[in-house]
């Protein structure tokens, strides 16, 4: 159950500055790996509790300019405000 996304993940860059960008810039339907969350400790902890820990694979379900975006992570759908989507760095 845990590694079922791995084959897909292998095709995306896993580390390095190359390809790192804010979640807000990722098109819907893409699978990316979470690299860092640029925010205070509190928010980092909240997101981590909801499953958004560095290294985890996330799938962008919906990402429209101006509105919040929806991602799939660890089997649940999480809605992230626009501002936050800019602070989440993925690669």
């Amino acid at each position: 159950m845990m590694n079922k996304h791995l084959p897909g993940a292998a095709s995306t860059p896993r580390s390095g500055a190359h390809g790192a960008k804010p979640l807000a810039m990722v098109e819907a339907g893409k699978r990316v790996r979470l690299k860092a969350i640029q925010s205070g400790r509190e928010l980092q902890a909240r997101l981590a509790a909801m499953g958004l820990t560095p290294g985890i694979e996330i799938e962008v379900i919906r990402n429209q300019s101006g509105g919040p975006c929806i991602v799939a992570v660890r089997g649940s759908r999480i809605m992230l405000g626009r501002g936050m989507a800019h602070g989440i760095i993925v690669g």
């Binding site: 909240r46 649940s76 809605m79």
Partner: peptide, 10 residues
Amino acid sequence: STPFVMELPP
């Protein structure tokens, strides 16, 4: 601005 995080339950 309070970060907006919410789970979308099925």
